[in-house]
Design a protein around this nucleic acid. Structure first.
Lengths: 242, 242
DNA sequence: CGTACTGTTGAAAGTCTTCAACACGAGTGG
DNA sequence: CCACTCGTGTTGAAGACTTTCAACAGTACG
């Protein structure tokens, strides 16, 4: 399971691409809303990944950076005992795989089926040299990831299982685009959630059950979560919160 | 305790400083070894902080960036229940307080007495615009912090108390400058260590005691730790490690 | 329709925390 | 110089929470 598969995809220009060859670079960095999805697909170097496919592994040469178009990507570290810690999730319009080091520092996998934009690393380097605005955006990505990681540390540092689950849904609710009535459609399995929260599946499940019992959330289907009481959820997430 | 004190210090040039006024900027970013400490003190804007003094608080306007010259700084978030999570420590020659957002995202405090270099944020912005090399260094700092935060997440996610303590000392041992025989001189209290590891003082202490019992470390004095068996420490740190 | 996988729940075991007591060292005042 | 006191560090015992092991339910897919 989760072994590297051959790359599907609409292929790439050579890695030797220099600025001029990277006209999609600006699209790669574009803010949400700057360009439509169809526009992206027309111009970008689009790649597809199947559920659980490894996009890149920790230690691989960091040749490409990515931007999620559809689906979700998990960034994780796998331990000797077989357990893994998910460090971050990337949802549509978020970028990942932008490294300064030679190798990738963690493994990226497709949570469900994923469509992504791919940009050679060299291309990004070249672009950032010439364009301070793009350079700034790259910096902003690091900054955003860092802020997320620090929140994650704070969560793992002293929240109980129930508080972690509540915080997790709160965070998703906050950055959500689809504005239906508090419905979260996650492609994540319980294992994915547990590995992000630093808990076992069972504990995660029990926390979910208790939130259901309190009528704070509902789970109409496997991968769908409805927040029925946002205030209650907030209270739990911050029960000893910040 | 830990209330903000008036700034001691050798004072600053105006915040309206533009590139030309920031000749110490290049020193601020200089890599370790590029300049001597005395050189720094001669040219840099040096500030002093007393033990437990707040350097800046979460939510403050992010006007300055810092670089540790002597002592150690802790970056933390404080929760409603009074507990705090230390997100990162900064030792000599490391920089902190470099934010993109308007406000500081966490609180920085002096662990012991601290000497630091201070640089106005505007100055850094100006510098990075003109100099791709400095821009690159700023990016490298974010990248380094991000990597540290991800390791921290991995640690809090699945390591036991003993493993966390072992990992912590391993990390310190790895990045240590003074190359005496495996002796760590930390200004950190047990509370500091516990807050970083996401444990209580007592649990941290018990883990330390057990490592002592196993003859893996020794604590000749309060704030000094000697690693007697690096291999053993590594084994414990990775017992279910990466 | 069964098989396999994911999700859910229960009970026992383990780890960490909490509460409490005590040890140790530094600094102060007698 | 010593005794006192306060802050920090250490250890013990009980309790809370999470994990582990195990069984079962629900759903998707062939």
């Amino acid at each position: 399971m989760q072994r590297r598969l051959a790359e599907s995809a609409i292929d790439t220009p050579g890695d030797s691409a220099k600025p001029a060859a990277c006209e999609h670079g600006c699209r790669f960095f574009a803010d949400t809303g700057c360009i439509s999805k169809s526009d992206m697909e027309a111009h970008g170097v689009t790649v597809h990944f199947a559920r659980n496919e490894t996009i890149y592994a920790k230690g691989d040469e960091a040749r490409f950076s990515y931007r999620v178009v559809e689906g979700a990507v998990r960034l994780s570290r796998i331990f000797a005992d077989g357990r893994r810690q998910i460090v971050n999730f990337f949802l549509p319009d978020e970028s990942f795989g932008i490294e300064l080091a030679h190798d990738y520092s963690a493994t990226a996998e497709a949570v469900g089926d994923v469509v992504a934009l791919r940009c050679p690393r060299l291309c990004i380097s070249a672009l950032t040299e010439g364009d301070p605005d793009i350079s700034q955006k790259r910096l902003a990505m690091f900054s955003k990831s860092l802020a997320a990681a620090e929140r994650h540390v704070a969560m793992l540092g002293h929240q109980s299982a129930k508080e972690r689950v509540a915080s997790f849904f709160m965070a998703l609710e906050m950055q959500r685009r689809t504005d239906d009535s508090h419905t979260l459609d996650l492609p994540l399995s319980r294992q994915d959630i547990a590995d992000y929260l630093g808990l076992t599946i069972e504990t995660t499940c029990r926390a979910l059950s208790e939130l259901k019992r309190q009528n704070i959330i509902a789970t109409p289907s496997r991968r769908r979560i409805v927040i029925r009481d946002l205030a209650g959820l907030t209270a739990i997430a911050e029960g000893g919160g910040e």
